[in-house]
Simulated assay, not measured.
Amino acid sequence: MAAFPLPSCDTIVVLAPHTRAGATILAKNSDRSPYECQPLAQAPHRVHRDGATVHCQYLEIPQVAETAAVIGSRPFWLWGFEQGLNEYGVAIGNEAVLTRETLPSTGLLGMDLVRLGLERSKTAREATEIIGGLIERYGQGGSAQYDVDFRYCGSFIIADHVDAYVLESSGRQWIVRRVEERACISNRLTIDSGSLGSADVESYARARGWCEGESSFDFAAAYSSRNPGKDKSDPLTARGRLARSRELVSRNGRRTIREMLAILRD
């Protein structure tokens, strides 16, 4: 019987001190269909008039005064990016995660958030706070797949020359963990507690009975889809991919671009 490769949608970052070239490396696979092509799209640095708006995939929101030049991998039917880079060296990769939230038909997509984060930031920390603020204000929703109605929340690695952050979300709630040396994400929630997040991320979950008793708050355990425990929930079969990428990226030595490409192919 022929063996078919599993789709791989995984994002990895290694900070500059742990790479051979001394430069931060962000790498990502996208598991979209081969028929859902992703041409590289560019947008120049722009200054916008007062009162301008930007039309994302399903929402039109106020535009900021100035947006950075960006380049990104853009599924042909979407406004936003799967991954991208801006003129200031901020890079973002996006993953689908399924959570307990039932998403509406209109909201921001993870791809919208990647592009908005890149266009509106000069550092990874700034992009992280921008994406979190947009999630809180506008929420997530709408189909993110071309041929079927498939709605999901976003997980992100956001990096620049010196810093990187993992941001995970559910509906209008979000949480952030700062990356120490390297990090990997896939199609599942991983953060237990974070250094930054929405103000009511814990109270929202407790009000819905997603946290057990008086136990300490664990974002992944509380928000993961159909989950009383984060290790029991893996609806997008990400656990094995995540473990494998973590193993490979943590091996001794400083990572190279060639090695990162090999990890993506593994």
Score class of each variant (00 low, 15 high):
Ala65Arg: 10
Tyr58Glu: 00
Ala96Ser: 13
Ser193Tyr: 09
Ser169Arg: 02
Cys37Gln: 13
Pro104Phe: 05
Trp77Arg: 12
Gly142Asn: 04
Gly139Ser: 03
Leu196Phe: 09
Ser198Ile: 07
Val97Ala: 00
Asp192Phe: 05
Leu236Tyr: 15
Ile12Thr: 07
Arg172Gly: 00
Leu108Met: 06
Ala243Gln: 10
Ile191Met: 11
Val166Arg: 02
Asn187Val: 01
Glu212Pro: 08
Ile130Tyr: 07
Thr67Pro: 03
Val47Trp: 05
Leu264Glu: 07
Lys230Ser: 15
Arg172Pro: 01
Arg74Cys: 12
Thr19Gln: 11
Gly89His: 06
Thr237Phe: 14
Ala27Arg: 09
Gly93Ala: 03
Arg115Ser: 06
Tyr58Thr: 04
Met111Tyr: 01
Leu78Thr: 10
Arg178Asn: 05
Glu259Leu: 09
Ala43Ser: 13
Leu248Met: 07
Glu168Gln: 08
Glu129Thr: 11
Ser250Thr: 03
Gly117Pro: 10
Asn227Val: 10
Arg20Gln: 15
Ile157Phe: 11
Ala205Leu: 14
Ile263Glu: 04
Gly72Trp: 03
Thr106Ala: 10
Pro62Cys: 01
Ser170Ile: 02
Glu66Gly: 02
Ser198Phe: 10
Arg74Trp: 03
Asp112Ala: 02
Leu103Phe: 00
Arg125Thr: 06
Ala52Tyr: 00
Gln38Cys: 06
Glu214Lys: 14
Leu242Met: 12
Pro17Gln: 06
Thr102Ala: 14
